[in-house]
């Protein structure tokens, strides 16, 4: 069922530790960011799902502020076929590579509240 306040639903779910996305009841496409209408087929029935959290870094940039530690800004393609901007933590920003497998987690202390971040997926990276 369509949520009347999809952004609120998203942030509430992230706060509980998940990476939520929507799935279109009409065409079964993964939809992100959350919406009230499917951008692929126009259907208005979207169901919430929780991502398994595994994905691949599609692109990456490192920002090195003069007065703080460098951090990465990445685009991650989740295995459920949606893309999200995020950052890779627990790894020096300059070591983040395109193509790297990563796993989602929730950083409760993001600059705008709880946010989804990624860590290297060690088991798969070693294979």
């Amino acid at each position: 069922m369509t949520q009347s306040a999809p952004h609120r639903e998203y942030t509430d779910r992230v706060a509980t530790g998940s990476l939520p996305y929507q799935s279109c009841d009409g065409c079964l496409s993964a939809v992100f960011p959350p919406r009230v209408i499917c951008p692929f087929c126009g259907a208005t029935d979207l169901s919430w799902r929780e991502s398994a959290g595994l994905g691949t870094v599609y692109s990456a940039s490192v920002i090195a502020p003069r007065d703080a530690e460098p951090y990465s800004v990445v685009l991650v393609d989740l295995d459920e076929r949606f893309r999200i901007m995020s950052t890779v933590v627990d790894l020096p920003a300059r070591d983040v590579r395109i193509g790297m497998r990563v796993r989602a987690g929730v950083d409760p202390d993001g600059p705008t509240g709880p946010r989804v971040v990624f860590t290297p997926e060690e088991r798969e990276a070693a294979s």
Partner: peptide, 12 residues
């Protein structure tokens, strides 16, 4: 403009 699904990651 809100909501942003990028701002939390501090892109420039």
């Amino acid at each position: 403009e809100l909501p942003s699904y990028e701002a939390a990651y501090r892109p420039r």
